[in-house]
Design a protein around this nucleic acid. Structure first.
Length: 940
RNA sequence: GCCCAGUUGGCGCAGUGGUAGCGCGCUCCCUUGACAUGGGAGAGGUCAUAGGUUCAAAUCCUAUACUGGGCACCA
């Protein structure tokens, strides 16, 4: 006997243990068609949030669905090392412990990261397990484990050999806080209020010069020109002259360039090629030098003269104060501009000229684009196709080097004896004359670094200044001029050129998304030609949020095509994000974060899963309200209790109740028809990646049709004598319940498994787990629209009596007599009589012989009118009021139906069946109106 | 600036041409042996606005407004 209410916790624990023991979600290559999903590996930054709960509930539903359909479903678990995001977590921890990362050193830092990662993976995988995720746990992978390391190296090497990876000096997005470069898509924008400063640059040799407008005065020390538009008459007289930068008095030329918009600011543009993308381009056109005035540490360099060493914020304030007091500042106006923000720490990004590694995405994007256009790759919902396509079309090269410690170290080694190391390491290369610092550093490296006595950071601390012949990219083709460079996963053997072994590995690591991009390949053992890879690749479906469509989805497709000539998956399901109940994004600072574990503790895992999935309409964000989980919990309980009821009406020792050739009565045929329809439609919805539709449909069917109507009807027969009718109803209950539990299983695995175990013996089934047994066998011939239509008349008739009872305050327990008239009355008095008596709490139901009974109230439904004698109870004023309302409704219906009918009959093109249907609707409403009018007339 | 999506009862959302639905909330009644995590009955919407197509529009088209998102930005 089941408990009165469902208690999720013990059931979940028990089921998880039995699934684990049976290795239910294990998958190995076989004969069945594979259905494969690789998990979007969560970053090892902490615990899972509600978005992960949604993402993984969806995947689990799809995986279970396909497994139940008989496919070899394989869902690969794992975590992502998470690069900057994870390093930031550790840096915060260190800060709390008052430990300086650089004092700790790279190796010790990485050791701590490993420990953290181990714990974090355990937490995350434990949470996924708790969620019921049917992952193939034996396949657990990590983007930075040994196997994935091989894949990363192989990918790097292959791309390098194909000339698709190069190192060059470019203007990149630099996060001062994180101390690293970022790719373009890792930069967010935010509109912020600022000011536009008009600054006077005096003419060299004296006189009025140019007034430039800028939002960032500190960059002026890096200016290498002032540009004006050649058509701007106000300034053309300055062309060819030179102006002086305030304070440092460096002289720069006035140049002309059509890029300059003379509507904006003063019409004079200061050009800072090293710190602005547009200025960089102007610089390229005019062969201007690029001066780095801001260092990697966010402090001003020696080029800033007296301001050198100040942070960008302090320097900003100081420079403005000085410009003002020295009368260089001509004007300050309010100005809104979109500042660039780091997607990991939200600090302001600086465009910075530096040496970085790049992947040629322009080349790699070609195949994915073709796959998209040919339909080889589909995105659900389709609204993301265009943004995805646009991104691929306008793609730029991908900066993949990161100046952090946590990640795959770039597998490139430099021979320090036979090359100028600074040319490779050369991150602090400055356009400044004098000194042979390069040589000094080279000797220093050759002498000490190889003894292990210096860290790269210490090297940087030397801050070497020297003239660098820049502009030359390093790639596989130009490698001849860089003989001291070698791509290798481990330290290379003796250098062929110099015969020594002075190798230093590039100190940068790869963008975390580089290894993520290889995920669908790497989890199956690529680059080895494994059985897994042959069987599972390409994977079937990828399920993820839109925020990483470009960062991840697009990159996986690029890599998939590049290395396997096939997309990584033919389908991508893009779901929305989970917001708070008022639609705001969840964030720690807003304090509106929902912890999925808390929801699972409070309401059960099935409830959380159902609540999320019932709202997961394709591509739409979810406004998450805990009330929805409570509602789902109630549904779980409803399911529990309906099974409890069925079991109470079955013998304790299971006997098989098969539908077989049982003599089914009307209600049986009705519920079977509905069941057929609903379950097959729910499965189709899951096929179409629309779990919300499946969840909704099953919810309504089970609660409103199966429980509220069929079970209530069944009670009549179940309390009666043993016999064929009773066995038939038992068979139907068992059959539909077992099938519905299976249909719901992908969405709420725990309770369905538990209840199925209770009921399966009665259904003559023996599968140990729902997943193993698969979906119920459906029989389309059971769909019966006529029966469904007739049942709706029965329901309408019952509802009309219930409504009358309620509105006339007839006590619910009081059985009343009724007489019926009308075209449908015969059926109600005949085969549906028992239903009507039971559901409407009637003492008797008789045909109307002679006139309408005295002192009676009237209920009018389609096809039937009931008269219910209520002598002494009835309030005629109230009754008239009630009937008047029904009449108004009937008349409204007639009006609408008449309009429709008129429309249809006026149109030659109108289909005949539509006309007939409209006529029927119209006549039914008209009949109701007539009955009501008569009754009202009698009452008054 | 360009592009996309959304705008449906108090709140959150379904509904791709034929009399507007669901969940939550609200009102009234009910602890009759599956379930008060329940049952029954109700109230509540001219489907953002303006045009258009059609016999018929929440649904298709156009424009506008607002909201959200993507992309690109003038220093």
């Amino acid at each position: 006997m089941l408990e009165k209410a469902y208690d999720p916790k013990p059931v979940e624990e028990k089921r998880l243990a039995s699934w684990d023991a049976a290795q239910l979600s294990r998958s190995v290559p076989g004969a069945k068609p594979p259905f494969t999903i690789v998990i979007p590996p969560p970053n090892v930054t902490g615990a899972l949030h509600i978005g992960h709960a949604l993402n993984n509930s969806l995947q689990d539903a799809f995986i279970r669905h396909h497994r139940m359909k008989g496919e070899e479903a394989c869902w690969v678990p794992g975590c992502d090392h998470g690069g900057i995001a994870t390093q930031n977590v550790m840096e915060k921890q260190l800060k709390a412990e008052k430990i300086d990362r650089h004092a700790l050193g790279r190796d010790a830092f990485l050791e701590r990261m490993q420990v953290w990662t181990r714990d974090c993976k355990k937490t995350i995988l434990g949470q996924l397990h708790r969620l019921g995720a049917s992952l193939d746990w034996k396949r657990e992978a990590f983007t930075m484990d040994e196997e994935r390391g091989k894949a990363v190296f192989h990918a790097f090497k292959t791309l390098w050999e194909r000339g698709l990876i190069y190192r060059g000096e470019r203007l990149v997005n630099w996060c001062v806080r994180c101390g690293t470069a970022l790719s373009d898509i890792e930069v967010e924008r935010e509109e912020r209020k600022g000011a536009l400063y008009h600054i006077h640059y005096p003419l060299e040799g004296g006189g009025e010069g140019a007034v430039v407008a800028t939002t960032r005065p500190i960059t002026m020390f890096g200016d290498t020109a002032v540009a004006i538009n050649p058509k701007d008459k106000r300034w053309t007289h300055l062309i060819g002259k030179r102006v002086l930068i305030p304070f440092t008095n460096r002289s720069i030329p006035i140049i002309e360039d059509t890029y300059v918009d003379f509507e904006f600011g003063t019409g004079c543009l200061k050009v800072t090629p090293a710190h602005d993308q547009n200025d960089w381009e102007i610089g390229q056109r005019h062969k201007l030098p690029a001066i780095k005035v801001l260092g990697r540490d966010g402090k001003l360099t020696d080029w800033a003269g007296q301001y050198a060493g100040l942070s960008r914020e302090k320097a900003h304030d100081q420079v403005i104060a000085d410009l003002e007091s020295e009368k260089y500042l001509r004007k300050k106006e309010d100005h809104k501009s979109a500042v660039q923000i780091c997607y990991r720490c939200s600090s302001i990004i600086e465009p910075l000229l530096s040496f970085q590694w790049f992947v040629n995405q322009i080349e790699l994007a070609k195949a994915p684009l073709k796959a998209l256009d040919s339909g080889e790759f589909k995105i659900y919902p389709t609204s993301w196709v265009k943004p995805y396509r646009d991104w691929l079309v306008n793609i730029k090269d991908w900066c993949v080097s990161r100046q952090i410690w946590w990640g795959h170290r770039i597998p490139v080694w430099y021979c320090l004896t036979c090359t100028n190391p600074i040319a490779y390491l050369g991150t602090e290369v400055q356009l400044k004359s004098g000194k042979d610092a390069g040589m000094q550093v080279k000797q220093y490296l050759a002498g000490s670094i190889l003894e292990g006595g210096i860290s790269f950071d210490e090297l940087l601390a030397l801050n070497p200044f020297f003239e660098f012949e820049a502009g030359k990219d390093v790639d596989a083709k130009s490698i001849a001029s860089f003989p001291g460079l070698k791509v290798s996963q481990t330290k290379p053997d003796t250098c062929k050129t110099c015969g020594k072994n002075h190798w230093y590995q590039d100190s940068d690591v790869l963008d975390t998304w580089f290894s993520s991009a290889l995920w669908p390949l790497a989890v199956f053992g690529w680059p080895e030609k494994t059985k897994d890879l042959a069987y599972y690749y390409p994977t079937s479906t990828l399920v993820t949020g839109y925020e990483i469509l470009y960062l991840w989805v697009a990159r996986m497709q690029m890599m998939g095509h590049a290395f396997m000539d096939k997309p990584a998956f033919p389908d991508a399901v893009i779901h929305g994000i989970v917001r708070d109940k008022s639609g705001k994004k969840m964030s720690k600072s807003l304090g509106n974060v929902i912890d999925p574990l808390v929801m699972m503790e409070k309401h059960g895992t099935d409830a959380l899963r159902f609540a999320l999935m019932a709202q997961a309409h394709p591509g739409k964000d979810i406004a998450f309200d805990e009330q929805t989980v409570v509602g789902a919990r109630n549904f779980v309980n409803k399911l529990w209790n309906s099974t409890r009821f069925v079991l109470m009406n079955l013998p304790e020792t299971p006997a098989v109740y098969s539908l077989g050739s049982k003599n089914l009565e009307f209600a049986d045929r009705w519920i079977l028809s509905r069941y057929q329809r609903v379950v097959s439609h729910a499965q189709a919805s899951l096929d179409a990646y629309d779990p919300a539709a499946a969840a909704q449909e099953l919810y309504v069917f089970l609660w409103d049709e199966f429980c509220a109507w069929y079970i209530e009807l069944a009670k009549g027969r179940l309390t009666g004598a043993e016999g064929e009718s009773k066995d038939a109803v038992r068979a139907i209950l068992v059959h539909i319940l077992a099938g519905s539990l299976k249909a719901l299983h992908p969405i709420m695995p725990f309770v369905t498994e538990e209840l199925y175990a209770e009921i399966k013996a009665y259904a003559g089934e023996s599968a140990e787990f729902i997943l193993r047994g698969g979906y119920p066998v459906l029989d389309g011939s059971r769909v019966n629209p006529e029966v469904e239509k007739e049942m709706s008349l029965v329901m309408g008739a019952v509802t009309s009596i219930r409504s009358l009872r309620s509105q006339l305050n007839v006590p619910p327990g009081l059985k009343i007599k009724a007489v019926a008239e009308g075209p449908f009355a015969a059926a109600l008095l005949g085969k549906h009589r028992a239903y009507a008596l039971l559901l409407a709490q009637l003492e008797s139901l008789e045909p109307m012989n002679g006139g309408r009974p005295a002192q009676s109230a009237t209920a009018v439904a389609d096809g039937v009118t009931f008269h219910i004698p209520l002598a002494g109870v009835i309030d005629f004023a109230k009754e008239r009021e009630r009937l008047a309302k029904d009449l108004a409704k009937a008349e409204g219906d007639i009006e609408k139906c008449a309009a429709k009918l008129k429309n249809l009959s006026a149109a030659a093109s109108a289909p005949a069946e539509k006309v007939a249907e409209a006529k029927e609707q119209h006549d039914a409403a008209a009949a109701r109106r007539d009955r009501l009018k008569e009754t009202i007339a009698v009452l008054s």
